[in-house]
Structure formats: C-alpha cells, structure tokens
Design a binder for these strands. Structure first.
Ligand code: FES
Ligand code: FES
Lengths: 150, 150
DNA sequence: ATAATTAAGGATATTTTTGTCCTTAATTAA
DNA sequence: TTAATTAAGGACAAAAATATCCTTAATTAT
C-alpha cells in the first residue's frame, strides 16, 4: 500500500496555476503564448495541458485564439485575477467549503472532530488564495526569485 | 471534466482519523473494539477499513488481537498520539514537506511562486496536526460536541 | 480437539485522475 | 484558394486511489 495524497491541490491544478503564471501579463494582441511554449515552460504533458487550458478558457480566466500566431492570453488585468479563481475552476470548492474529515457537509451545527481547529487554517489558506494575484506570482518568477519548474 | 480534489487529506486518511478517534482510549484488555463496530461507527466500507487498520497496526498506532473478543485498541496513551502521526502513516509526508505547486522539492533556494505564502500556512497546519491529540478529538465526540459520521 | 470468532493478507475489481491520440474547426499567410 | 498553424474536443489508455472477495492465521470458548 502506498498512499501518497494529502496534497492541497490536484496535480491538474498545479499545472493550471503554473500555466497561468507563465501566460504573459496582458490581453493585448502582442502578448500571447501557445500550448507548446507553456507546456515546455512548466514541464507538463502537452496534450494534458491542452485540456487544462480549455477549462481555464471556459472559466474565462484565459482567452484563446486559433491559427498562426494564435495562443493564449490573460482575460483581464492579472493583478485582479486571484489564485483562488484558478483553484476553484480546476479543483472546485471542496478546499474552501468541504469537511476536513469527510462529513457530507462542514457545518457548525454538526462539526467533525477537527472542525474548529481546521476552520482557522482554512480561513488562513483561503485568505491567502483570495489575496494572491497572478502578478504577485508572475513578478517573482520574472525577477528570478521563484521558479516554474524542477 | 470534473476535477474535484484539493482535499488536504486522502479519503483513506479521513477514514483512518475517524477510526482512531472511535477506538477506545486505552490499551487495556477491556477496552477494545473490532472492525465491524468501527466501520459501522464511521460509515466506511468494512473490507477497505480493514486494510487501513492494518496499516495503522503496522505503524504501531494500534494494537490488534485476533480471535473471539479480539479487535483493536490504542497502542499507548491517546493523549500522546497526535493527528500528524496518523496523517503521516497514511498519506505520507507530502503535506508537511512537499511543494504546493509540484516542484520536485520544496526548497528556499529554489522556491515556487507561492512558497513563502504557502510556508506560513503549512506551518500553521503542521502545528495544529502536531498538537492535536487523539484525546482532544475523542473527547469532543464522546461529549456529543463533534461527530464521526454524516 | 473442535468449532467459532476475528484480524491478516493476497488477488481482483471499480472508480477517479492523469495522460495520449487523432480529427475538426478557426485563423493567418502566401 | 490553398497550405500552414494553432486550439477544441471526442475517444481512448494508463496509472493511482478506492473498494471487494476470499483464504489463511491466530485466538478463544466449548
Ligand atoms: S465539519 Fe469537518 S471541517 Fe467543518
Ligand atoms: S517550493 Fe513550492 S512550496 Fe516550497
């Protein structure tokens, strides 16, 4: 038996976050990247990354354009796009609203054994996800402070 | 597409935690419960729960005895058994040491784009897991404050 | 000793997540 | 208008997590 979960974000979601960080910080025609560049930059399987980008486009986090020089660009100001939006688009809201111990609903009136202790952590986490913008993250990478791969 | 992870603990781990809470708080011969009672109490599939209990026994969190009136009991003082031990036994240490965005290693010298923000949350979380004992949790359930199922 | 009870553990099955392949649609350039 | 390029999307495949079944081993009571 080799259980190895407990990972906060799904692998799919991790790819999605790194992909979003890599997409240039503008929705102008000029600043656009494509699937090949993205999957290379974040070291992810190309075909799988394509599926993830589709979801991000459907969720209006990215804009896609087909054809030569097509590709992906941000939909809106990246300083106003938050990490929580990506997590929600890919992993759904379980991280924000689910019970840590698997009860059907997380509720004050019927709390699990770690509800109160967990609640504080969840608030800390969701606060961070709601307040961290794409520019926050992309700047670190562009300045060579943080990294997208390895 | 329906991605629905981002759950902090694996389902297996959630079962394990609730099972540990249900096992009576003593390693004496008298206070012992068995697979059937546990899986009923926490609403989990019996055969699968058996596998999980095996892992907990191998990790010395539980003691098992075969035969009539056999079953499972705590290995040691439950006020000195911590939530983090269960998580580590079942899900491994990725939650404690892994990179939030999937880099091979979480390291200050090569941080991902959310490393510093994530680090604080991880410390908060691991602090909680290391300081929450089985009695902390079991007391709440025994006092009717918290619940193991639904 | 024998039968009954309970956990251990191997084998297998199902479901979910992750990943690939290939065809179609849209756009651009020549 | 034709060819080239790029994303969309359906179908399929592989891997991992979750779950079941059945046989064996250990213990207890009769
Ligand atoms: S009920 Fe479990 S975290 Fe709220
Ligand atoms: S490097 Fe990603 S969390 Fe530390």
């Amino acid at each position: 038996m080799s259980y190895n979960k407990g990972e906060m974000f799904s692998k799919t979601c991790k790819y999605a976050i790194n992909a979003m960080i890599y997409v240039p910080g503008s929705s102008s025609e000029k600043e656009r990247t494509n699937l090949k560049e993205i999957s290379k930059a974040i070291v992810s399987p190309e075909a799988f990354t394509a599926k993830i980008l589709q979801v991000l486009v459907k969720n209006k986090l990215l804009i896609s354009v087909k054809g030569p020089h097509g590709g992906f660009s941000m939909n809106g100001d990246p300083s106003k796009i938050f990490l929580s939006w990506i997590v929600d688009a890919i992993d759904g809201d379980m991280l924000f609203t689910g019970c840590a111990l698997g009860l059907k609903k997380c509720a004050e009136e019927h709390p699990c054994a770690v509800h109160y202790k967990f609640k504080a952590i969840r608030e800390h986490l969701t606060g961070m996800l709601h307040s961290t913008s794409l520019t926050d993250m992309a700047d670190r990478v562009n300045n060579g402070i943080s990294f997208l791969k390895h």
